[in-house]
Simulated scan of single mutants.
Amino acid sequence: VLYIKMTVLTTAFFCGYKLGRPWHADFQFNWARMPAAIRRAIANKTRQSPGDRKDMVKAVVDQMLEHEPNPTRAICHSVVRSIIRSHPECFADVAKNGDVLGDGCYSLLQQIKTRVEYKNRNNTLGRRRRERRPRSEVPDEGRAMQRGPVDQYGCVRWGPLEIPPGETEASLDGIKHHLLDIYSKEGMSGAERADPLMEKTYIIQRRYLNSVPPPAIAVLKEEWPFLFSPRGFFSHFTLLTDIPILTKFREALDRKGNTIMRFCQEVKCHQRVKSVLTCFEHEDSDKAACILLLVMAYFKEPKDAIVLEVDTCATATDIKSTITLTSTPRLIVQG
Rank of each mutant, 00 (worst) to 15 (best):
E309H: 10
T259S: 15
N30Y: 01
I163A: 05
L277N: 07
D151V: 09
L308C: 10
A25E: 03
T238F: 04
E301Y: 08
E301T: 12
C313H: 11
E131Q: 07
C290H: 09
R127G: 03
F228L: 05
P22S: 11
G174R: 08
L19R: 10
H177Y: 06
H67V: 07
K119E: 14
R272L: 13
Y17F: 14
R207Q: 12
P329L: 05
I203L: 15
C264L: 03
V333D: 02
P213K: 06
P214F: 07
V1W: 15
L108F: 07
M64D: 08
K287W: 08
L246D: 13
L246M: 09
S327N: 13
I319P: 00
L125W: 06
G126S: 13
T324H: 08
F237K: 06
H177S: 10
A289W: 04
L161S: 11
T46G: 04
R115S: 11
I243R: 12
V57K: 04
M56K: 02
I38W: 02
D93C: 12
R21K: 15
L294D: 00
P69R: 15
S189W: 03
L209E: 10
D242W: 03
S82Q: 12
K119V: 12
V94W: 05
H24K: 07
F29V: 04
G102L: 03
Y183L: 11
C290D: 04
R115P: 02
V94S: 14
P22M: 06
H24C: 15
I217L: 14
T72M: 05
D181G: 10
A297W: 02
A37D: 02
A25I: 03
N123P: 11
H236M: 13
A191G: 06
V60M: 12
S321M: 02
E141R: 03
T11C: 12
N120S: 14
I38G: 05
T241W: 01
L161E: 13
R47K: 14
G159M: 13
